[in-house]
Write a protein that binds this DNA or RNA. Structure first.
Lengths: 344, 344
DNA sequence: ATTCCTCGTGTAATCGATTCCACGAGGAGG
DNA sequence: CCTCCTCGTGGAATCGATTACACGAGGAAT
């Protein structure tokens, strides 16, 4: 592959001049410029980004470590991150942690070795020393979706508290009193927060969240299935299952179906994270939708701000409830009169 | 960040010795080795991959340009690619083309600038000159899922022909005679092949595929919706719609639902590409499943073979039909004994 | 004792860019 | 006519690694 030297030789100038033309530095004669450009053209020259990075100490690359690529929520996040980054002139390298701290660390390490300019992480666990070190060492970093408390890193996330309250109100109005949750890992902020929000909302309605109704999941479908099995085996199973993410909801659906039960007649289901398929599931699933695209874009902007020396601030956007039929009543406007409308 | 010089100074040896220790070259004394290792430890030194790549002319990185990250099929493919690559000591940089040739070229270009060791592509169009040049120039390359004919590049894909035949037989047996297809872009091999396979299978049953029943989609949900609208507007709408990918099937579902029609009673639906959600849609969707994980792994192996100087061969794996209820008859797996377990 | 290996190590070239500095030509101002 | 700038340009250092080559010390073989 042609190097800058070849271009210089072809154009009959020095490498310095070629470099100047390429970075459009002002002091180059029109003549030299056209000759260089012509040489670039005939040789099909493309600057070696590796060499450039070594010299300039910047890669114009962002690292994104997400918890699980198979989760549509993170997929959408990744997409918006890449889009915004591209608009700002950065590339993105995605690392998939698969909810495993060791894999997460592996990716953080490789990314750091690659000297990415900044790191976007939605941490799988509560305190990878590697990541803490990186943050302390001054690597520009932003947490997205999940975060690690006590670290001086901007956090871009969405607040589901009021949406969860809306959900519980909705459920309560439908007559449900025994509500259970499939929680995410306690090591993650979203894992804890969603349970806390749920419990707080229940309390507002004078309801309790017994331990038996708190299943421990790991944000993967299989755990949703397992926990749901447990719920269904109880002497007094819950009337509603709230899954803290869409994959665990999928698992719950698997489990309910395996028992030959029906949603919402036998048991109601709601999920955190809305995905397109929830419109077409049987029944359509009531969910809490995050402004995923906005989240990704805000995260990139905050990170690039940091990289380029500007402050880079935390952002919190509200999530909102999307009512469908999986909890009983169809329709978006929660009217206090439980109209029995048999659908599908 | 500490460099190899700092380590050398700390250990009281030359950079050459440090490098030798790090690449475990045999001729280093035990004493020097321990001193270097200690220095690496205390300084928290990590080799700069950028510098190393410049010198060795290899990045140990693979580029993967996929058509659409939001498509679960490609997501799963990407995941298996990354997994296998990691096992072989490579990282993967994913570029999302969003089915847009210009974006595809953008990613190929950046990847090439980054001097990735090899390129995995599922081309969005039939002949990006950039990619052809790269292939000719000797960049190790492998096509996955889709390919560009006439290029000397191994292809790893799955063959859906017999599965499509099984599907048509299944549909025919259910009494369907008016079968329509939502095709993918003609610029892609998968776009053409699936139509061809469908048409050939129809012919075997003495059926025809009229133009009116061949809708042009682009592998995105919206096009599925649009084409389906068109089908439903026909004086004689088809009895079955076969979507050439899962996203267009989603769009079709949207359209059918918007009309207040029901699947499969009013119209049957089948899709190429199976995804987990198809089990839980209303109704569960009959689909053709590709061995996605195996595909991704085989593609990486072929590419790494090429990179490391071995032949690197094409692979074709069979897809298979998964019958569910969206075409009329309940599938084999769901046992038709709904245990009514009423929970008080 | 001399010669010849082997072994461990260091010096320096190299990869492909960017950029500081020096230099010569030419114009402006005294 | 001399001095001083400005402008365009090239030489060379530099980034952080790898690696060819040279070299000195020490042991084995003669």
């Amino acid at each position: 592959m042609a190097s800058i030297k070849d271009v210089a030789a072809e154009a009959g100038v020095s490498v310095a001049t070629v470099s100047r033309v390429l970075n459009d530095h002002p002091s180059v004669s029109a003549d030299a410029r056209t000759r260089v450009l012509a040489a670039v053209e005939t040789l099909g020259y493309r600057p070696n980004a590796v060499a450039r990075s070594l010299r300039t100490d910047q890669t114009r690359t962002l690292g994104l470590v997400i918890s699980d690529v198979l989760n549509p929520y993170f997929t959408e996040l990744a997409r918006s991150v890449e889009e915004e980054a591209r608009a700002l002139g950065y590339s993105v390298i995605i690392g998939n942690a698969d909810e495993r701290p060791d894999l997460q660390d592996h990716h953080v390490r490789t990314l750091l070795d690659r000297r990415i300019d900044g790191l976007l992480v939605s941490p799988t666990d509560g305190g990878s020393p590697l990541m803490l070190d990186a943050a302390r060492a001054g690597t520009p970093m932003v947490f997205v979706d999940r975060w690690i408390p006590g670290v001086e890193v901007p956090v871009v996330r969405s607040d589901g508290q009021s949406a969860v309250r809306d959900l519980v109100t909705h459920l309560h109005r439908l007559g449900h009193r025994r509500l259970a949750i499939i929680a995410g890992p306690a090591a993650t902020t979203t894992g804890r927060e969603r349970v806390d929000a749920f419990r707080a909302a229940l309390r507002e309605h004078g309801l309790d969240l017994p331990d038996a109704y708190t299943g421990q999941g790991d944000f993967q479908a299989e755990s949703g299935r397992r926990v749901t099995e447990g719920f269904l085996d109880l002497a007094e199973p819950p009337e509603v299952i709230f899954a803290a993410d869409n994959l665990m909801a999928l698992g719950a659906l698997d489990a309910v179906r395996a028992r030959g039960l029906r949603v919402p007649d036998d048991i109601a289901l709601a999920a955190f994270d809305d995905i397109r398929w929830f419109v077409h599931t049987d029944p359509p699933v009531t969910a809490i939708a995050q402004p995923t695209g906005a989240l990704g874009r805000a995260a990139v902007r905050a990170l690039v701000d940091r990289i380029e020396g500007r402050p880079g601030e935390s952002v919190t956007l509200p999530a909102r409830l999307v009512v469908r039929r999986s909890c009983g009543e169809p329709g978006p406007s929660p009217s206090p009169s439980p109209v029995r409308r048999s659908t599908s």
